[in-house]
Design a protein around this nucleic acid. Structure first.
Length: 453
RNA sequence: GUGGAUGUAGUUCAGUUGGUUAGAACGUCGGAUUGUGGUUCCGAAGGUCGCCGGUUCAAGUCCGGUCUUCCACCCCA
């Protein structure tokens, strides 16, 4: 072996067992999406950098994978920019494409581009990999799949309701106990305004997002450090210490921010949504969490985050409403809302809880042992018939030693093995062996098909 | 981007104060067994000790750099 082959940092190969399990996740998610009237689309792995840059904040731009221009790109770059040795500046001259960072921005681009063909409100789902030049660690990869559902072109809070129902439905099918945390960016904006720091909303929300992680004192310290005034932090305290039912929380918060226009709007949105939700018997827990901030800065209304109750792994699903994502592509005043399921983290949760189904439909059910040319000819038509009856079946491709063929069946966990040698051919029968019990029975081709179908 | 840990057979890991030919288990392959797998027994193959350089009579072992993987921060699914 000359050199050990490897794959890039933060990427993974998926072997058959993993693929079967991943498909199980994707399939149940897709089933639910379709059930609610969503339709699939796909977009290219790479987008023009102009559509990607500036949509995810400064941090996001850094995490974009950029693709080098084709051809002799360096000679086309201005010499003074090369001499300057400023990577950011040079990038614009040598790269004009990048790998997608998420599915929402490409979707917004898609909507604007096909605005005349799309029937609004447009409900689409999209399951594809995205790439981030992040430093990988537990549960974080540089290539990972997102499963997005969004509805765009409708302000109705019925859409928010539907998304929560979808979340409930998906995780109920996957048997994961979850809690859905909901907040509203308008409430956060109202808070910032009410305490007199309207333009510091990002710093404030980033800090209070960490409340359950680092505690009240450190959150206050971080805000003060970021330059939020003492009085503002002081005014914020009752909000950080909110307790009680959702209605009670909303009432308390209204007392503080109800006089601001955004704040009042946010509160009424949450009241409407929770009133909707009260009509349904959801299995998942749903709670209003005023400390939930979420990083992506295009959210403008409701924001969601879903956590597993049994496994500590960060959020397994998240999303929110964005009022003007298409505006930057020249199509203003179109509101959308959506959530994204994190396939890899769901995979980890299911693995840790041992919740993957055991009997898979994707493996082989029966294997014909290969004894030689004559025997092959005898088996092949029956093999074809099994497949016609939707039985996953195969024949060992060479007449290797019996031990090797049996071992193959064993390793692949094939539950049935079919043997047909001289004796069986003479009797016009097949020996069907159950690999689990070791039982064997002599059957005709018709019986064989009947038993295995 | 910042900080910490790690790297020896396909895999998981031993390897003494630096000292001759780097070991084990599991896995793989072959045999015991010419139409019967999982168990057992025997045998074999498999290594640039991550890479580059330095110290030394001598480096898997010590030093520097680099890369990889993992963990934390930032941020995020």
């Amino acid at each position: 072996m000359a050199q050990k082959p490897s794959i890039p940092k933060g990427t993974r190969d998926f072997s058959p067992v993993e693929m079967v399990r991943r498909n199980y996740i994707f399939d149940t998610i897709k089933d639910v999406f379709r059930l609610y009237g969503f339709q699939p689309i796909e977009t290219p792995a790479m987008e023009n950098l102009s559509t990607l840059m500036g949509k995810y904040g400064e941090e996001g731009d850094k995490l974009l994978f950029k693709i080098l221009n084709s051809g002799d790109f360096i000679s086309k770059a201005p010499q003074d920019v090369i001499d300057e040795k400023n990577s950011n500046k040079l990038t614009t001259h040598i790269s004009e494409k990048g790998l997608r960072y998420d599915l929402t921005v490409p979707f917004a681009r898609y909507v604007v581009q096909y605005r005349n063909d799309i029937v609004f409100p447009f409900k689409r789902y999209q399951i594809q990999p995205v790439w981030r030049a992040d430093r990988p660690q537990k549960g974080r990869y540089r290539e990972f799949y997102q499963c997005d559902v969004d509805v765009i072109g409708s302000d109705s809070l019925l859409n928010e309701l539907e998304l929560v129902q979808i979340i409930d439905d998906v995780f109920q099918r996957l048997q994961i106990n979850t809690v859905v945390k909901i907040n509203n960016r308008k409430i956060l904006a109202g808070i910032a305004e009410a305490i007199g720091e309207a333009d510091r909303i990002v710093d404030i929300t980033v800090a209070i997002d960490k409340l359950d992680k680092i505690g009240l004192e450190k959150v206050n310290a971080e805000m003060l450090e970021k330059g939020i005034s003492d009085t503002a932090v002081e005014k914020l305290q009752p909000i950080l210490k909110l307790e009680g039912s959702t209605a009670e929380k909303l009432e308390q918060i209204a007392a503080v921010i109800g006089h601001t226009e955004v704040g009042a709007k946010g509160i009424s949105e949450m009241q409407t949504l929770f009133a909707y939700l009260a009509n349904f018997d959801l299995k998942t827990e749903v709670e209003l969490d005023l400390t939930l901030a979420r990083g992506l800065n295009y959210y403008t209304g409701a924001i969601f985050e879903v956590k597993s109750k049994d496994v500590q792994i960060g959020s397994i699903c998240g999303g929110g409403r964005y009022d003007d994502l298409t505006g930057i592509f020249g199509m203003p005043d179109v509101s959308g809302v959506g959530v994204s399921f994190g396939a890899e983290r769901i995979y980890d949760v299911l693995t840790q809880l041992g919740l993957f189904p055991h009997d898979s439909l994707e493996t082989t059910k029966a294997l014909f042992i290969n004894f030689g040319e004559k025997e092959e000819a005898y088996c092949l038509p029956v093999l074809a018939q099994l497949r016609k009856n939707n039985v996953n079946a195969e024949i060992f491709p060479e007449s290797a030693k019996m031990k090797k063929q049996m071992n193959y069946a064993n390793r692949k966990e094939i539950p049935f093995v079919i043997l047909a040698g001289e004796e069986e051919i003479a009797a016009k029968k097949f020996t069907l062996k159950n690999m689990e019990t070791g039982e064997q029975q002599l059957v005709s081709a018709e019986e064989l098909i009947k038993v295995l179908s």
